[in-house]
Design a protein around this nucleic acid. Sequence first.
DNA 1: AGCACGCCGACT
DNA 2: GTCGGCGTGCTC
Length: 800
Amino acid sequence: MIIASVCIDNPSKEIDRLFDYSVPDSLKESIKIGMRVIVPFGASNKLIQGVVLEINEKSEEEIKYKEIYDIIDEEFILPQDLIKLAYFMKKKYVCTLSEAIYSILPPKMGISECIEAKIITEDCSICSKKEKQFLSMLNKDKYLKIDLKSINIKRADLISMRNRGIIDLKIETKQNLNKKTVQLVRLKDNKKAIELLNNKKLKQQRNIIEYFLNNNINEILLSQLIDILGCSRVTIKSLEEKGVIEIFEREVYREVATEYANYPKHILSHIQRKAFESILNEYREGRRVSLIRGVTGCGKTEIYLNLVEYFINLNYGAIVLVPEISLTPQTVERFKGRFKDKVAILHSRLSDGERYDEWRRISRGEAKIVVGARSAVFAPVENLKLIIIDEEHEYSYKSEQNPKYLTREVAEQRVNLIDGLLVLGSATPSIESYYNVSRGIYNLIEIDERVSGSTLPDVHIVDMRQELITGNRSIFSRELYSSIEENLKNNKQTILFLNRRGYSTFVSCRECGYVCKCSNCDVAMTYHISTNTLECHYCGQTMHIPKLCPKCKSKYIKHFGAGTEKIEQEVKRLFPSARVIRMDMDTTRKKGEHERLYRLFKEHKADILIGTQMISKGMDFKNVTLVGVVAADTMLNLPDFRAAERTFQLLVQVAGRAGRGYDKGKVVIQTYEPEHYSIQLAATQNYNEFYKKEIEIRRFLNNPPFTDLTYFLFTSNNEEELIKICKEIEQEVKRVIPSDFTILGPTPNFISKIKNTFRWNMMIKGCIVDYIDIIDKIIYDKTRATSVKYSIDLNPYSLI
DNA sequence: AGCACGCCGACT
DNA sequence: GTCGGCGTGCTC
């Protein structure tokens, strides 16, 4: 008989293995590796989703296997290279196979059950009270539909009663696939139609027929017909009843992106042409990865477009990855504009149905180019040959959930499997990638010229300590203030950047130093002026500002530090005539709001844009000539070895927003640490110098890329047990790792409590590949049957 | 992770 | 004698 080994859709570690099912004769022909199936699982044979990963012929039938219940679809079959990729992630990022497989697959289309039951016995004596109560609602002659949500009975109880011969069940499963359809109308009977035209009464109906005949229309959307003729649905229905016309349904793909202006092919500049050719030449010589380090505005996208076109013309497919945040208008516009409906877009705001539609278009080979965020690296593109990762250094390329993969590593593995090409692009490549260049692993292309010929902006660093000494206590330095003023006068746009939302960073008592902290989390609460409350940015709890200090009863409660809300208020106060837009999590929470504000600013409907991270990248505003960084060192002092790299990258990105048009841009960076190398070198946009400094520090402190840093986070609401288990784990782990590895911790996390859950962490420095499985086993055994949960993150992007 | 089974104390 | 609370072990 044929046995299929199935990966069950269940992320739990205890059942992280394949389960064998026999394949019924009805499915023998169609079943294939990579197919999604429905299988009964567990004692109650609950039907769940699985993916077939192996098919074997077995002669002996001593083990009683369960049967595969059904196939989910024959359309989408997980290709072999993606299955290999799942195993790769399981090994590298210590996740379950199920987690790996189901992060690759399109969203689970939930399986829902419709259960009907009827009584088949007179004898209810063996039933419990609960069961008797349930039976009283049932019928003996006919099956009744059971809604498990509304009654006090579980699915398992039903199964149990059926097994004891009390009731009989009819269980049907449905997949909520919801393929979307549209209603179309067409003429069915021409003769009848012409006859009807002689009828003097039915004016509306005649209108409809005339419309069909005069415009020689085969078929038309029902909704469109109603719109154009202003007739009612009833009129059309009555025509249908007469058999004159026909209304029919057709499945459609949900419209993901609306309309895109044509984006014509540009002639590449000499430099772009050279980059394009270098990448292809190196690729032909067997080089898998090319890194383009190009200043903002150097025209990387144009190189990407040409690479994609090159491969498409050879009938290959391509994936273009962009950070989620810049997956808004611009990049999409360009790719859709150039390649039209050959492009599929995948981003996190798609509904499950929309995402599923895009997946089908891709796996059917209708869309050969995929533009998407992180998870689009798994897109089942037919004949894939090229993967491009734009803004390669971005943190959104690291997954926060299991599998905690880094997109670049997965992409590299994927092009290795398919003999393809990976192109990375960034103005400020990650230290790891550039290190790979210096080791000769990646091919490097450097572009230091802007395509428009516009020069890089003038950057001014302002020492805020000096401002304070000379009596300026405002959040704007004199230089920034006068620059904004002048920019407004010249009718130019300004961007003010501050990586912190809310009004003030913390609220504290001036007498005793008490800080308003969240009662669930170990963090200071942020004041929000719009709601006049203190909000915890970790658990969302809000509270009112105390009038008196809860500790010393003093009334000197003051705000400290500034957030975007405060900047907005200050700007409005200082420049009352300026039109201001604020973009942060609070103002863009609503769907479509991000895009609306972006367009508003682009169309110069506002003079000043205030925002967090989200305005620092991807946006191209021609009329912006001033960028102000209100506090450059907010991230510099976090306990994280990437703090300097992150600050440098952010400042370069932000500065890149200035002067993209014809006028020279100006950037004002306000800081309390003007001499710090990441700020100094960001001001001169000197990546190479920054890399040299940073890589030496990494080498000296033995941080990535010179070693792996594996981060273990332990959480529990029982602090005592948490500490005890952490210490025991450290002792045991110590015994299995080589002596040149270092263990840091266990220590309380930088944020020691979130939502009443205590957090401790431990880090291991050392090449972990050969040891991670045994360490995982130790931790798994130690934490099982305790309140402690853990997560493992290989080379995390954030240590907080 | 679910879910069933089984053992034990509490209670009509 | 019945109910339900949680510890234990299994899932093809």
